[in-house]
Computed example of a mutant assay.
Amino acid sequence: MPKKGNRKRLKFRAGDVCSESVTVADYANADPAVVKSGRVKKAVVNAVEKEVKLLCGLEASQGAVQEVLSSAVSVTADALESSDELDPEDGENETKVARKKKNKRRKESSESSDGEEYPVDIWLVLSSYIRPEDVCRFALICRNAWTVTCTAAFWTRLYRRHYSMDVELPFRLQPDCVDRMRCLRARVIRSLFHLYEPFALRVSKIPALPESTPTTLLNSKCLLFWVKKVSGTRPEAMWEFNFKFIQQGHSKNGSAKSLRMPRQYEDVHNNPDSDCYLLQVTTLNFIYTPVVMGMTLSLFTINVSTDMRHHRVRLVFQDSPLQRGRKRGEQGGTQVVLDPVHSVRLMDWWHPQYPFSCA
């Protein structure tokens, strides 16, 4: 295909046009380089006008001549437009122009939808009317709203708004302890599961052992392990085995660091139990178990006990975490078998019965 600069422009003269040389094919196959804008040159118009007068004998009827010329010019323009569409270079130019116009419209629409930015004081006033379950939605409105949810004033007001003397709270969740800056957010959230009725109902509906427990605890690191003797309905005392896990890849206060928490609010959001779970297994008698602190859980199963009346819990720990997409065999790990088992519970860090460690 010849380059655009090498195209030969056609030159029309009035004397070159006659009845035998002017055809419809000349306009249909016209070179786009003749008239780029789609308009016919004046020389061509005069030649066609003269030829039409000679053929139709319309020297005295200028109106009819203009009508014939307008139809001829329209045919020529349509032919030129169709030929422009077939030209790939012209198509690329039109695409670029269309993209520029589209980007300009998007920029104008974005500039018009920016809105206004309100100061933090206004968001702090609005936060006094936010329900506990809507705190996350409120923080996602804008950066200033999120900054308000980081302040100690926000969490203190939320606690005082729902506090009631009729509800029995643990000592660490009493008003005197909540006034401390350190771990303020964690304390308020834990207290809401005692004070706020929708949260308390949510805890009562959570099953003791969710179906996703094996998947949740898989590849989790055991931070702490202890055994506690508890009294039950049986004449003999039962034993409670507690495993505190943290998900691999999560560090303490990792969420605050990822969001670039302001330095003055780091103590408010400090939570040593963040991303932690407590697996509580209650057995009918004491069972010797090896030390598994610092090891990674690679297998967790719950089966029926040999007496067909209780459960049997099996935990397999490894020295190193599992790589993503790979399965580790059961051989070579440290096994913990608890049988017979009376009950199994899995609790998040905000659960009312979770033994939190924040002082």
Rank of each mutant, 00 (worst) to 15 (best):
C150M: 07
I122R: 01
Y163R: 07
P119N: 06
P175R: 04
E108G: 03
L86M: 13
Q174P: 01
D179Y: 13
R172N: 13
D166G: 07
R99I: 11
P88K: 10
P210W: 04
S204N: 12
A98P: 00
V178Q: 08
K101L: 15
F225R: 10
R185F: 05
D134H: 09
A200M: 09
S191Y: 01
H162S: 09
R160Q: 12
L169H: 13
D90S: 05
V125A: 01
V203T: 03
K107D: 11
V125H: 11
K229L: 07
L217P: 01
L218I: 09
K107W: 09
A98K: 11
R202E: 14
T147Y: 00
F154H: 02
G115H: 07
E85A: 12
K221C: 15
C177E: 05
V135M: 07
E94I: 15
A153H: 14
E211T: 06
F199V: 01
C136E: 08
V120P: 00
V188T: 02
V203S: 02
S204A: 14
A200G: 05
R131W: 01
D176H: 00
L126N: 02
C136M: 01
E117P: 02
Y163V: 07
R187V: 05
R180W: 11
T147K: 10
D166L: 08
P198T: 00
V148N: 04
E85N: 11
T95S: 12
Y159H: 15
F138N: 01
T216E: 01
L224Q: 10
